[in-house]
Computed example of a mutant assay.
Amino acid sequence: MSGQLQPGGGLSGPPRPARIAAYLALLVLGALVGIAGSLVQGGWFPGGLALALLATAGLFFGGLYVTGTQLGVGAPAAGWLIAAVLLSIGRPEGDGIFAAGFGPLVYLLGGMVVAVMCATMTRLPQPGTKSGRLEK
């Protein structure tokens, strides 16, 4: 996984075991970042919130960079979202990770916005490609 797109790569060919393993690892890493971010954002407000959002942005952009596909953002984003939603659901006793307030809302909405931003980014620049301009 070099972070470069290969012609005919992506989802056009049969999935390779290394690529499947990378996406599963990104899914698990997304869940771990979601759990850690959920705990940190409330514990060290407002610095913890900024740290949690920076960690999610780094993970999502790193997934894009490593795989070179939007699915590289989608896998960690899915793990992050599943973890964050499961932690936001309270137990029958009333216990929950998220408290009602501004911080958890910004963390959930901000993480989703960061995932969409990374998924809709233009492709990463390819080294050694020529521009469309004619050289004189």
Rank of each mutant, 00 (worst) to 15 (best):
T120C: 01
G43D: 13
G13L: 06
T69D: 06
T69A: 12
A22N: 02
A100L: 14
G9H: 01
A31H: 09
S88M: 11
A78G: 15
G110R: 15
G63T: 04
G103W: 01
L134E: 14
A22Q: 11
G74V: 12
G8A: 13
A36C: 14
P104I: 00
G63K: 02
G10N: 04
L32H: 06
P17F: 04
V106Q: 00
P127I: 00
I97E: 13
S38V: 09
Q70M: 10
G37D: 04
P125M: 05
P92G: 06
G30A: 04
A115W: 01
V33H: 04
L86G: 09
G110T: 02
A18W: 05
P104G: 01
G72P: 04
M121G: 10
G63L: 05
G90D: 08
G74S: 06
L51A: 15
A77E: 08
Q126R: 08
L49A: 00
P7G: 09
R123E: 12
G13C: 02
G42N: 14
T67A: 03
V73I: 08
L24T: 10
F102M: 10
R19I: 06
T129F: 10
R91P: 05
L81H: 07
G37Q: 08
G94N: 14
A77S: 13
S12N: 11
L108P: 09
F61V: 14
R19Y: 04
I97G: 06
L108Q: 03
C118P: 04
Y65K: 15
L59E: 07
P14H: 07
Q41F: 02
G101M: 05
L29S: 15
A22M: 13
P104E: 01
G111A: 10
F98S: 05
F61P: 03
G30H: 04
A21R: 08
Q70C: 11
G13P: 05
T122R: 12
T56G: 14
L53M: 15
T129H: 13
G58H: 09
A78Q: 04
G47A: 08
P127F: 06
L71K: 02
P15W: 09
A119C: 10
A119E: 03
S2Y: 14
Q70P: 10
L64C: 03
A75C: 13
V106M: 00
P15Y: 07
G30N: 08
G79E: 08
L54G: 10
G74K: 03
A50W: 11
T56V: 12
L51D: 01
A77F: 08
S38Y: 07
Q6K: 12
L53T: 01
A31L: 07
G9F: 00
L87I: 10
T129A: 14
